[in-house]
């Protein structure tokens, strides 16, 4: 059970033929995204090849500095991506989002690697892939939560104005929007937990089983990572919005949606 079939490059090449089928469907349905699909597949290939090479090098020459650099790059990229999907928010709000995502992500990585798995933090084989899963999910959650918050606040301008004029505090007016944002960000993660093991064998578990890990061990990892992901999404979104919404009003209780 302990050997894995290494993919032969020529055999591997046939997977790209599948893209032709997708392209044919695009053409038939007049979906104007062929270029996007090609760019996407190309970028994925290049990025993963690079990641493969870099990881191979790091695994052969493990050094704390490499782990730290990889981690820093991952956190920076996740912050950049989450913010670039929500360009309009103000500077202070952006800084709060960056801190919330960075710190909660880093803390949950520490918790998982040191607390749950209990291996040396500088062991790249554990720290790097686990960080990737945690940061990737935290990033998606924060983008979604932020987008929901922003869109709801913008479409409910009349509500915000009416309540402000009625003498409600900015906190009581805006907190329901924060709650909604956190809820929306968490739903996909919770939904995926529901189908897990029956409809889908999740990525991490599949990978471990393919590489020869006992399924009973693989499920423990999977359960642990799912709960960690739920927590990191919850905390990162909550801190982003709970501290971020305060940038939308001043001491005179004037809510300014231009700041969003």
């Amino acid at each position: 059970m302990n050997h894995i079939v290494v993919l032969n490059l020529w055999q591997f090449g046939i997977v790209y033929l599948l893209l032709l089928i997708v392209l044919a469907v695009f053409k038939r349905c007049k979906i104007n995204q062929s270029k996007f699909l090609l760019i996407g597949s190309l970028r994925m290939t290049v990025q993963l090849v690079l990641a493969g090479l870099v990881l191979t090098y790091i695994f052969e020459n493990p050094h704390p500095l490499f782990v730290l650099l990889y981690l820093a790059a991952m956190i920076a990229m996740s912050i950049h991506t989450a913010l670039s999907r929500n360009r309009e928010i103000n500077k202070r709000f952006r800084a709060i989002v960056a801190c919330s995502l960075g710190f909660t992500g880093f803390f949950m990585i520490l918790f998982f690697v040191l607390g749950v798995v209990g291996v040396n933090f500088w062991n790249p084989q554990y720290t790097i892939p686990i960080s990737g899963m945690i940061m990737g999910n935290a990033m998606t959650g924060v983008s979604l939560g932020l987008k929901t918050f922003q869109e709801n606040v913008k479409t409910q301008k009349a509500q915000i104005e009416a309540l402000m004029n009625a003498g409600a505090t900015p906190k009581s007016i805006l907190l329901p929007f924060v709650n909604k944002g956190v809820e929306t960000a968490l739903l996909p993660t919770i939904n995926s937990m529901l189908g897990m093991g029956i409809i889908s064998l999740p990525g991490m578990m599949t990978g471990q089983i393919l590489s020869g890990t006992l399924p009973t061990t693989a499920i423990l990892y999977q359960i642990a990572i799912m709960i960690t992901i739920t927590t990191v999404v919850c905390l990162a979104v909550f801190f982003s919005l709970f501290f971020g919404y305060r940038t939308l009003y001043n001491k005179k209780n004037q809510i300014s949606l231009d700041l969003l």
Binding site: A158, A162, N165, N253
Partner: peptide, 17 residues
Amino acid sequence: DTISLRKEVTLVSQNVF
């Protein structure tokens, strides 16, 4: 205090909510 002020001086905006 702007909150108490708005309870005393109440604006009914043009945008009905």
